[in-house]
Computed example of a mutant assay.
Amino acid sequence: MYIIKTIDNLYKKIQFFKKKQKKIGLVPTMGNLHLGHINLIILAKKYVDIVIVSIFINPMQFENSLDFKKYPQTFLKDCLILKNEKIEILFAPKISEIYPNGTNMHTYIQVPKLSKIIEGKSRPGHFIGVTTIIGKLFNLIQPNFAFFGEKDYQQLLIIKTFVKELNYPIKVISSPTIRLENGLAFSSRNKYLNDLELKKAPFLYKTIKDTINIIIKNNGNQLYETINFAKMSLTKKGFLVDIFNVYNSKTLDIFYKKNKNNIILASVWLGSTRLIDNKKFILPH
């Protein structure tokens, strides 16, 4: 496995693979790798000849420097995982390599509508940071395929939108959320949870599933009451609910009974940790 830290060295490797007409796949990460990331790597190997994993904790997508500084860094462990998975290239640049003049005045990519609603409303600027770094990685690596998990569903939709609208010749492939047996989605932020919070955390996904069952049973009627009941259940369990609602899974517009494809998006705080989750469902007519 090559560990590449500079753009110049990355370019040389990419050109080498391109000349050999190798198909390249990118799995972008912020490190602290878990089973969700490994699942994406396994998926990528089915599509491409060369899998490149990036590890870059992107300061542009954090709302404050404290959150950025406390993000878990496990670089040596991550390298062992990637070596075990027989990855060809790990791209792990320093911040100064990606943002030589800092992030404040850096050119950015924004998907106007999708970046400002739901999670984007609660975390202004977050998705601009995400799309900008992904755009930069796409330009640097020029992958044929890029692989993302569905846990960050709004992020996935935003990336698919800018790839389409900016005419990137890249196919975005998504993978369903990987969960523990108790339903808790794998996330790097789970490391912030204490033992008691870890026991409570799976209640979020259980509530999402229970809410969907009620919505389908009621054929979309009494939605306001159903959502409110879910929020109250989460609050009683010790969660602070920021987002919990039903949206069109293709446009992220608010639920409308004639929509066939729907999704519950949820963002909650458990202690000092923000957890996000989702589940799609079809409302039969």
Rank of each mutant, 00 (worst) to 15 (best):
D78A: 13
L66D: 10
I215E: 03
A92E: 03
S175G: 10
L223E: 14
E88F: 12
D152K: 07
V48E: 14
K20P: 02
I212H: 11
E181H: 02
L80T: 15
G149V: 07
K206V: 13
S174C: 10
K83L: 11
K257E: 08
K121C: 15
N101K: 02
I282N: 07
F16A: 04
H106K: 04
I214S: 13
P93N: 03
R123W: 04
K236M: 15
L270R: 06
I52D: 02
K5F: 07
P124L: 05
Q155P: 06
K199F: 05
G125Q: 01
W269H: 14
K280L: 08
S175N: 09
V111S: 14
M232T: 12
P124I: 09
G102W: 00
K199C: 14
G149I: 02
I50A: 07
L283A: 05
I7T: 14
I216K: 10
L82F: 04
I95L: 00
F203N: 15
K236T: 10
K151P: 01
G125M: 04
I158T: 05
G271E: 01
Y153F: 12
K200Y: 00
P100H: 02
K83C: 13
Q110V: 13
L33H: 00
S272T: 08
K231W: 03
G36P: 11
N278S: 03
L26Y: 06
N259A: 08
I14Q: 11
F75T: 13
Q21H: 09
F255D: 06
I264A: 09
S272N: 12
T207M: 03
I133K: 02
Y224Q: 09
L157T: 08
N84Y: 03
F56N: 12
F17P: 11
R123Y: 13
V246W: 04
N278P: 10
E97P: 06
L35D: 15
P143S: 03
G102N: 02
A92S: 15
L66Y: 13
L252H: 08
K46C: 01
Y153K: 09
F148S: 02
K46W: 01
S267I: 10
K18S: 12
F229D: 08
I134Y: 01
L184A: 05
I128L: 09
G183S: 04
N64A: 08
L90E: 01
K250N: 15
I109D: 00
R189Q: 09
G238K: 15
I87W: 01
S175Y: 05
K70F: 05
T273Q: 11
I263N: 07
D49S: 06
N32Y: 11
A266T: 03
G271A: 10
L140W: 06
K23I: 11
K18A: 11
G125Y: 12
A92K: 06
T74L: 15
T211W: 11
L82E: 02
F62E: 05
R179G: 00
I89E: 02
I276F: 09
A146Y: 04
R274K: 14
A92H: 10
F91N: 14
G125K: 03
I276T: 09
Y205H: 14
K160Y: 07
L43Y: 04
Q222R: 08
A92D: 05
I81L: 13
F91D: 14
I243H: 09
E119S: 15
Y153N: 01
I254R: 06
K86W: 05
A201F: 05
R189C: 07
T103W: 01
G125E: 07
D210C: 04
F56S: 02
K250T: 09
S175I: 03
L43I: 11
S54A: 03
Y224I: 15
G220T: 07
M60C: 00
